[in-house]
Design a protein around this nucleic acid. Sequence first.
DNA 1: CCACGGATTGGCT
DNA 2: GCCAATCCGTGGA
Length: 204
Amino acid sequence: MKQKEKQKKLDRQFYTRDLLLVANELLGKLLVKKEKGKILSGRIVEVEAYDGSFDEAAHTFIGKTKRNEIMFNAGGYLYVYFTYGNHYCCNVVTGEAGKGTAILIRAIEPIEGISSMIKNRFGRNLLNEKEKYNLTSGPGKVCQAMSINKKHYGIDLTGDEIYLVDQPLIDKHKVVISKRIGIKKSVDLPWRFYIKDNPYVSRK
DNA sequence: CCACGGATTGGCT
DNA sequence: GCCAATCCGTGGA
């Protein structure tokens, strides 16, 4: 049987629902990127939700700017931003148009194209077992491994370049809820979600 | 193992 | 001019 026929790409309807509901459901889904015929994919294991209507840590809290405008689209677009002078991070825009809500993909478990991810991240082969888990265990690492950058800003996730694929529920994973990482405002919102005991989660 | 700080660009005030 | 939704190397325990 062909694997492809079983794959179900997540559609607009999936993304336009409530932020926290989508954030929870993103866990376990497959993030796929096709570029120059090469496929890279990984299972989402850690996310964080951001809501500019009252969450001061969200980039949309200050209103619409050129940088964040895609976050005000309806769900199903990719918001990529550049930070700390070095790193890109990617988010899934969520909810109805005008909401300014998105979900940061913080970690994935590599599935396909792993040798390319290693090359993208380290420019050499793995040195040890520990580096295997350092491949995609953080938002900047995910973008580096998947080679996601400014040119992917605003991509429609219902298209063919970058998209998410539903996954069959075999053993339902346990979800851990915690505070978000690396922010200085609205620090107490319990809006980080990750798959319990997955070795690619950025931290406990 | 953990804590700390430097790197380095660009968005926003 | 300030500072960030990060990462990595260093140095000490």
